[in-house]
């Protein structure tokens, strides 16, 4: 992977929320790269910090959030130092984002066409007529039938899947280099989910659009992603290619997560193996491994220090204080 150019290159990103002089670290020292021509999936449970990490890229965090990083490069530009007009040029233009709930992301009293035209004219010098024809082209591109008619309709006249398509069309207008998709299919039915995933994959291939997909569904990841980063409690626990994570997971958390999902083969008689306990509060896991309280292999060291790095290949890394090789050989 080292020969490829990095679109997004983040090292030791930290995000903290401040309220009444209490500081809560929600993203801790995460390092991420998005290479040109790949789909990166960030997997994690709710509250693992996956959305916050990517929203820091889009500058969408509330004012009480503080972002810092050792390195934060988007196409070679030092992203945290860019401000004002220059940044607005990039956001929504080179980087676009789509959200989980397509209903709340659209303005209910505005026509679909106006959503698109506003977005296009915001980033390009274009007449209304030109913008309109581009908008129609984009709606057609994302597979909305009779786009001219649909332009004049309001969001409530669209189904959930169609609304998500509209959001994708809006993001697509400026031909972004990077699309951040924050749980784009979570609110949709499985058949519609498959349609949207197919659309994203198509756009990834035809428009050369790189995608960061945030999701909690490992099945979705299996069907679309190239590389996976598993997050828990604000930290990255394991990264690797799709095959390395799904079929050769090393970290205790990733393994436990995979076991908690009913497989198709292992029959219905066997009991699911849930991860005991629940996700701890952010304030309770300042230092040490966030998985400490639920991990069956947790030891003294895990409480005060977070993971030593284990390298398995160029791409596959996991962070755990235990000697994972020994652990996995014992068949744990």
């Amino acid at each position: 992977m080292s020969g490829l150019t990095k679109i997004l290159d983040i090292e030791n990103l930290n995000v903290s929320f401040y309220s009444d002089s209490v500081k809560t670290k929600v993203v801790k020292d995460i390092s991420l790269e998005v290479y040109d021509g790949e789909i990166l999936a960030i997997v994690g449970e709710s509250g693992s910090g996956k959305s916050v990490a990517m929203k820091s890229v889009m500058d969408l965090l509330p004012v009480y959030a503080k972002v810092s990083a050792d390195r934060f490069l988007f196409e070679g530009k030092k992203f945290l130092e860019i401000k004002g007009k220059e940044k607005r040029q990039i956001l929504g233009n080179d980087i676009a984002m789509i959200f989980q709930d397509p209903m709340t992301a659209l303005n209910p009293v505005k026509k679909i066409g106006d959503h698109l035209i506003e977005n296009i004219r915001r980033h390009n010098k274009m007449s209304k007529k030109q913008a309109e024809s581009l908008a129609i082209e984009m709606l057609e591109r994302v597979g909305i039938p009779s786009p001219e008619k649909r332009m004049k309709q309001y969001p409530h006249e669209f189904s959930g899947g169609m609304r998500q398509r509209v959001l994708i069309a809006m993001a697509l207008c400026s031909r972004p280099r990077l699309l951040i998709a924050d749980e784009p299919t979570t609110a949709l039915d499985v058949t519609i989910q498959a349609q949207i995933l197919k659309l994203l994959k198509n756009l990834h291939e035809t428009e050369k659009m790189n995608i960061v997909l945030i999701t909690h569904d490992l099945g979705v990841v299996a069907s679309i992603a190239d590389r996976i980063a598993v997050m828990y409690g604000g930290r990255i626990m394991e990264t690797g290619t799709k095959d390395e994570i799904l079929y050769n997971a090393q970290h205790p958390y990733t393994k436990a997560l995979l076991k908690a999902i009913p497989g198709t083969e292992n029959g219905k008689k066997c009991k699911l193996e849930p991860i005991p306990g629940s996700v701890p509060q952010m304030k309770d896991m300042e230092s040490g491994c966030p998985f400490y309280s639920r991990c069956e292999h947790a030891g003294e060291a895990c409480l005060c220090e977070f993971g030593a790095t284990h390298d398995y290949s160029d791409t596959h890394k996991s962070y755990c204080m235990n000697d994972l090789k020994q652990l996995n050989e014992r068949g744990a």
């Binding site: 499985v190 989910q193 498959a194 490992l218 069907s223 995979l258 999902i261």
Partner: peptide
């Protein structure tokens, strides 16, 4: 078929 699965030979094929 639309259910995204993890098993290697059953992964949802989007094509």
């Amino acid at each position: 078929k639309a259910v995204p699965k993890i098993e290697k030979d059953k992964v949802l094929d989007l094509n």
